[in-house]
Amino acid sequence: MSEIALAQNPVSPLVPVVCKITKIVTETPDVKTFHVSTLDGKKPFTPMPGQLGMVSILNAGEGMFSITTQGENHLEFSIKRCGVLTDALHEAEVGQNITVRGPYGNGFPLDFCKGKDILFIGGGIGLAPVRSLITYSIAHRQDFGKLQVIYGSRSPADLVFKEDLFENWTKVPDLELNLTVDRGDESWKGNVGFVPAFIEQLAPSPKGDKVCVLCGPPIMIKFCLQSLAKLGFKNENIITTLEMRMKCGVGKCGRCNIGSCFVCLDGPVFTLAQLQNLPPEY
């Protein structure tokens, strides 16, 4: 993709730039969103929606994360606490220096999506990569048709990006927002149930070449795909992002291959039609 701009580093795609955390938003008990700028307050690089960044707390480790969205002068990473590096990130405070390299990966196929209605489906932290495209399509509202977001989490407390869900996105014209939780609580007035069942209940129509962008835990994706197939979505119009262990980010270190594709370079975004041509090893 010609639009890929390397991080401002003169040496190597493997050597990162030092950045700092400028803001931390606690999304859920185990998810935080980190705003990251270079030390002189600039955006480390300008990614396309769906691209990845390699984030490191230098003495804790380095890991690949989807870039949730970006601002004028910063990138956002929404990160779930689940290991050594993410523990260290969750302990970090505003001002903490971290390193970033990227952007990596193909990103969402914007040209393909433009002019079409888009159905976004997210589960749990899986909304993080999807959010980059939702934000982009809101910012370029005239380029897209109707937008619909179906999002679910385990409980109301586990819903990420609450400011978007309950404020920002509710004001966007022609954006339908459907939330569900696996288990509600006293205050929850919305739908209770798993995402795949919720999809079938809402029965979004695939008409008009509608594109579905889907991300969530593997088990949710598996059942959502069955629901989408029932509703008549074409495999070419179902887009998802994959996760594999990654080290280099530039298609060289080898471990994120699925067949002859590298998820870090040729992914992480694939259509279901593309995935069906790859070995089922992810």
Binding site: L14, N59, K252, C253, G254
Partner: peptide, 24 residues
């Protein structure tokens, strides 16, 4: 065979990141 890992050696407040051969 060229697959590699990237890892770090840390001692206190300094360290280095290296790559090393890895095996599938």
């Amino acid at each position: 065979c060229h697959c590699f890992d990237i890892s770090a050696r840390v001692a206190g407040d300094q360290g280095f990141r290296f790559r090393c051969w890895d095996s599938c």
